[in-house]
């Protein structure tokens, strides 16, 4: 072998198996993927809204971003070994807190 890898390379035939093996080799893959999706939606959405309207609605974008992450985390929960319960709980709690921010931020006619 030319390279000495510090982790075991995935050696599966199905997509699920490759995903599970990758995550068991690099444990931080799942939270980093979720963080990537969260900030992609949050920063991308709010930056574009600011470019169009001159102002960005951060509570709304954080809620949209956290719900996207939440849906992804739920899909990951259908296969053993992709996501741990601790990460799923953190994603759920972040989603709830983003919702609290959104609803506290709104006026009565905006919710």
């Amino acid at each position: 072998m030319i390279f000495n890898y510090v982790y075991t390379l995935p050696n599966g035939t199905t997509l699920d198996l490759i995903g599970t093996q990758t995550i068991s080799a690099v444990g931080v893959f799942t939270p980093m993927l979720l963080a990537f999706v969260f900030f992609l939606v949050l920063l991308g959405g709010s930056a574009r809204q600011k470019a169009r309207t001159g102002d960005a609605d951060f509570p709304a974008w954080s809620t949209i971003a956290s719900m996207s992450t939440f849906m992804l985390a739920l899909l990951m929960a259908t296969i053993t070994g992709i996501i741990q319960i601790a990460w799923l709980v953190i994603v759920a709690v972040v989603t709830i807190f983003c919702g609290i921010w959104l609803f506290i931020d709104r006026r009565q006619s905006e919710v």
Partner: peptide, 19 residues
């Protein structure tokens, strides 16, 4: 809604990781 959806999603799909 968030917690209920997650729990029902796990129940419907027999998820190994359940909220």
């Amino acid at each position: 809604a968030i917690i209920g959806f997650a729990i029902n999603f796990a129940a419907d799909n027999s998820s190994p990781v359940d909220l």
